[in-house]
Amino acid sequence: MLELRLVQGSLLKKVMESIKDLVNDANFDCSATGFSLQAMDSSHVALVSLLLRSEGFEHYRCDRNLSMGMNLGNMAKMLKCAGNDDIVTIKADDGGDCVTFMFESPNQDKIADFEMKLMDIDSEHLGIPETEYEAIVRMPSSEFARICKDLSTIGDTVLISVTKEGVRFSTKGDIGTANIVCRQNTSVDKPEEATIIEMETPVSLTFALRYMNSFTKATPLATQVTVSLSSELPVVVEYKIGEMGYLRFYLAPKIEE
């Protein structure tokens, strides 16, 4: 028996809108730790890792570890039917072939339940090693989204370089080139507008903008995004989900020519 009650149901709506176009089908894993997902895009270039810790739920019952295969597009369709202020409860029976999403309006005057068929998904779980990143950039998520969107109108790839000067996003295309440099800025009044750069070693990596733009669909989840880079390793683009967890996107770099 599984029953997870999330008062801030909009978080789950936002998570689904962020990943449904990147990943088609995925297993949601439920354990005492929390509700999690790890899945790759169909080209095996990007990996999504989601964790919603059990403590973040108002009610969390998971009698035994459960893996539920879901079509993310269909799950997103169902969650779209929940109001932004609704409480969302996820229910499933052990060994059952469906999951139920229950939506309750804040004043309890409307209760809806949507039942979705589960599917068998043969997915490979990857071990993500703990890494000390050479550079970690924390910046406003809206700013990061704007940069990725703007650069993708010029080129297909972005070269991200972190130096003492700051973080530089560069692209080139048929019509020309573009460079955007963001410097560390901790003097702003609001912490969510800060840009903080921690650099051990200068690092420079190239990534496909198509994927970066897809990751920025998670912008509504968090005011800040963390971009962690190490040479010869996938970049991690992380959006914190309130106090309860995170949505991380890993993207393999392009090979430098």
Partner: peptide, 14 residues
Amino acid sequence: VNPQRQITSFFSKS
């Protein structure tokens, strides 16, 4: 065009 690497070449099956 820079060739694209796959995520599976960095992270191993667990």
